[in-house]
């Protein structure tokens, strides 16, 4: 019984991390309707930046997350203005291919600059554990989980209650009408993409001390992110959070009671089931 609880909680922590990764994607895909397969690659690059900050200046990754997130906001806007704006008129396949190619470029760059070897970011508290009875949870993951939850909530608040959020929803719902009342859809979409990529940046920085910092992790990240957001329902932030939790817990249960490889395959099997049975995801209500 204890093993089960431990497993679920551990999985929940991991799931929280998946949620952080995915929440930005649900914004760009779910709201702005652009497929970004480079999302995981952005997470990877942010991890590398956090590693460099840690390596060269001893900066704690959670501290480094702040400038990194800001930087990625700018990068995201630039990415939209430079490429995605044009791509948004193309079909889905074009967007997939283009962003996959961008991911390749980033991977090639990371491999060439820093080698294929995973890097370790290990701040002094990274192995501290919090004990609740006989359940133990790594401190660093609790912090990451909390940040993820906060980010999800912040995004939801942003989109639901602010003027900006309203303009985003308006321009998605009816572009022409939005333009008529003075909203500039392309500007809105640029900023939204920026926020989505900024979330990827935040995720990358937080993940640096927890997961591997290596050039090849991004493929897993991207795929998991897509699974999570489809599971949770496109455009739903809390859905993405839930989706992440479910995936994380499934993986942890798989590893605890079955073999490691099965856990991974289970995630994919679950995806197929969801997409076939309930394609709108588990969160029935959308935020917009």
């Amino acid at each position: 019984m204890l093993t089960l609880i431990q497993s679920v909680l551990t999985g929940g922590m991991v799931g929280g991390l998946y949620a952080i990764m995915s929440v930005g994607l649900t914004l760009t895909f779910g709201v702005v309707r652009i497929v970004n397969f480079a999302h995981g690659a952005f997470v990877m690059m942010a991890s590398y930046l956090a590693w460099l900050a840690y390596q060269n200046w001893g900066m704690d990754p959670f501290v480094a997350a702040i400038p990194i997130t800001a930087l990625f906001l700018v990068i995201g806007i630039g990415f939209y203005v430079g490429f995605l704006q044009r791509l948004s008129k193309f079909d889905t396949l074009a967007q997939v291919l283009f962003t996959v190619a961008i991911a390749f470029i980033l991977q090639g760059f990371a491999t060439g600059q820093w080698g294929p070897d995973p890097q370790v970011v290990a701040p002094s508290y990274s192995l501290d554990v919090v004990h609740i009875g006989s359940i133990s949870l790594p401190l660093i993951r609790i912090i990451a989980f909390a940040i993820g939850l906060a980010a999800t909530a912040a995004l939801w608040l942003l989109l639901t209650y602010t003027d900006f959020g309203r303009s985003v929803r308006a321009s998605v719902a009816d572009r022409g009408a939005a333009q008529m009342i003075g909203i500039k859809p392309s500007r809105v979409q640029a900023i939204t993409t920026g926020i989505g990529v900024a979330c990827a940046g935040l995720a990358g920085a937080i993940l640096a001390p927890i997961s591997s910092v290596s050039p090849t992790v991004y493929t897993d990240y991207t795929f998991i992110a897509f699974i999570v957001i489809i599971l949770g329902g496109l455009g739903s932030f809390f859905g993405a959070f839930f989706g992440g939790l479910i995936i994380g817990i499934t993986e942890a249960l798989g590893q605890t009671y079955l073999d490691g490889g099965i856990a991974h395959a289970l995630t994919f099997a679950m995806f197929i089931v969801i997409v076939v049975v309930r394609p709108n995801g588990l969160a029935v209500r959308r935020t917009a």
């Binding site: 791509l87 074009a94 291919l97 190619a101 991911a103 390749f104 090639g108 060439g112």
Partner: peptide, 22 residues
């Protein structure tokens, strides 16, 4: 000899093709 060069080259080619001659 730059490791990752072929990935970068491939990525660039695909980007160009998708943008210009989709």
């Amino acid at each position: 000899s730059y490791t990752g060069a072929s990935l970068i080259a491939l990525g660039v080619v695909v980007c160009v093709i998708v943008l210009l001659i989709p």
